[in-house]
């Protein structure tokens, strides 16, 4: 490896640009000043107390957790079906079918949200948490399929054949051999779709009939300058939480790579 001082310093600057906002977040969440600007005034935890005292936040948090848990479960289960079908079996029309499932990745989210909204309104389905889950599963499924496809691909098919030869039926082979080996992929898919769902704003906003949902609540609060420090406190907690979740997901992904005997290269996506 040649040394490249200019590129190396550029890389460091780039990381500072990427992490700048995330470092600023806790700095001002603990800063004893309503106005978010330098110089820092002193240490306080009052913004955390103020944030937590809003009952709307707790309702929003509860709603978001219900939505994210349901979305992660549903999209991961649907992802398992699609990934298994596309990796293990040969059938005509595979490219088109998988392509359709992946379409939300290349479609602006606003269009997905509006198309769903138009249909829901015309059939007369009332907007609720349930309609948000429907939308979220749609946009999370491609991520689940992508992660799980690579998990199923790294699976050694001879292990399955060995189990079948030794007298297990198809279902118990899947349960005893395939499932444990792709478990890390399933965990990673669950955690990532959970994170996407918690963060998602457009669908939560337009398919949710104004029910308090975490992202919609944060969006609304940022319009009031006095609420900004409390939102930074909330943001600090959320960022800490996602970093913990992602580290766990990365751990499972690496363990999965190690289990199937592959080489570790790359990260998510």
């Amino acid at each position: 490896m040649k040394d490249a001082p200019i590129l190396r310093s550029y890389a460091v600057l780039y990381l500072i640009f990427l992490y700048g906002p995330i470092i600023i977040l806790p700095m001002f969440a603990f800063n004893d000043n309503t106005i978010v600007s330098f110089p820092l005034k002193g240490f306080t935890t009052k913004w955390f107390a103020e944030m937590w005292s809003d009952p709307n936040l707790r309702i929003a948090l509860q709603n978001s957790l219900i939505i994210a848990l349901s979305t992660a479960t549903l999209s991961t289960v649907l992802g398992i079906f699609a990934a298994r079908a596309s990796v293990r079996y040969k059938w005509p029309g595979k490219t088109a079918v998988v392509g359709l499932i992946m379409v939300p990745l290349v479609l602006p989210e606003m269009i997905v949200a509006m198309a769903l909204l138009v249909v829901l309104l015309s059939i007369g389905v009332p907007l609720s948490i349930f309609t948000i889950i429907m939308g979220h599963v749609l946009i999370c499924m491609p991520f689940a399929v992508a992660i799980l496809t690579s998990a199923f691909q790294s699976l050694d098919r001879s292990l399955e054949e060995a189990a079948l030869d030794l007298g297990e039926d198809a279902w118990s082979t899947f349960r005893l051999i395939v499932l444990p080996l792709v478990m890390p992929g399933i965990m990673a898919s669950f955690l990532i779709t959970f994170t996407i769902s918690i963060d998602e704003f457009i669908i939560a906003n337009f398919l949710g009939s104004g029910k308090p949902i975490l992202s919609v609540y944060i969006f609304g609060q940022f319009r009031f300058p006095a609420k900004v420090p409390a939102m930074l406190a909330l943001g600090t907690l959320l960022v800490a939480f996602s970093i913990i979740l992602l580290t766990i997901a990365e751990y499972f992904r690496r363990r999965g790579v190690a289990k199937t005997g592959g080489k570790n290269s790359g990260g998510f996506l």
């Binding site: 992490y19 906002p21 977040l25 963060d199 992202s215 944060i218 969006f219 939102m231 943001g235 960022v239």
Partner: peptide
């Protein structure tokens, strides 16, 4: 950074 709340990053 990409996996941390989009709304929070934009608002930041």
């Amino acid at each position: 950074p990409f996996w941390t709340s989009y709304i929070i990053r934009v608002a930041l």
